[in-house]
Simulated assay, not measured.
Amino acid sequence: MSKKSIKGIKLNKNINSIYKTKNNLFVYGILGYEKIKLKYKYFIFYKKKSIFIKIFSKKKMLKSILGTYHSIIKNLIFGVSKGFSKSLSIDGLGYYVKISKKDHNKLLFELGYSNLKSLFVDKKIKFNIEEKGKRIVLFCTNNILLGDFVNKILKLRKYNLYNGKGIKITNEIKVLKQRKKK
């Protein structure tokens, strides 16, 4: 039994409703709704403004997945009530990002290559470009979707510590290697 599932997930005032169908779990909040498809059969019940997940099986594999489901459902509840945001900064001379004039769900990146790199943004992800195209702030209710999109952006031009060029997460601190001393 997972230690997380014993504590339960506390619900806040921003959650409107949660219901489970045969295989799906729906969470409705002030920022919208999210759903997850549950592969294995679990019992989800309420007790004192908290959600508890239980499984009545002696299979070891199913008990190990219980903690994973607990974390996923907790992220869904947090995302629907408050949301997730990530901030990316683009460093380098001539490096910037802009929105496509034809399609407003498309970001165009100028990253020192001979042509522009483009990425389509999912409809669930909201974005804001700040500091004349040097910073992107992304907001989404789904943590997994946001993380995948941020990784796609980071792969366009990896941050080079020695030159100080590329795309990085804004508050991320990277340390240079020490040189060999003679």
Rank of each mutant, 00 (worst) to 15 (best):
I65K: 15
I73Q: 03
D91M: 13
F120T: 10
I51G: 03
Y113L: 11
N115P: 02
K47N: 15
S64G: 08
E130G: 00
F84V: 14
Y46N: 08
I36C: 07
V80T: 07
F56M: 12
F120G: 00
V80K: 02
I99G: 03
I99Q: 08
S89L: 11
G112N: 06
Y28H: 11
F127K: 03
E34I: 09
Y95F: 15
I44P: 05
I53Q: 02
N105E: 05
F127E: 00
N24F: 11
S17V: 12
L62K: 15
K86V: 12
S85W: 08
N105R: 12
Y95L: 14
S71W: 06
I18H: 09
L108A: 02
I90H: 02
S118I: 01
F78N: 06
G32T: 08
N105P: 00
K22D: 14
L88A: 06
D103L: 06
Y69P: 04
G83F: 01
K63W: 09
I125K: 08
G32S: 05
Y28V: 10
L108N: 01
H70R: 01
H104T: 12
V97E: 07
L93I: 15
L31D: 07
E34P: 02
L119W: 00
L93R: 15
S85I: 06
Y96E: 10
K82G: 05
H70V: 02
I72D: 02
T68R: 14
K126C: 01
F109I: 10
K124Y: 03
D122Q: 08
K86I: 14
L76D: 10
S50N: 13
F43Y: 15
K106P: 01
F26S: 10
L66R: 04
D122I: 05
Y33C: 12
I55G: 08
L119Q: 03
H70E: 13
G83V: 07
K41L: 09
G29A: 09
F127R: 03
L116C: 05
K86Y: 05
S85R: 00
L25T: 09
L116H: 01
S114C: 03
K39W: 01
K63F: 11
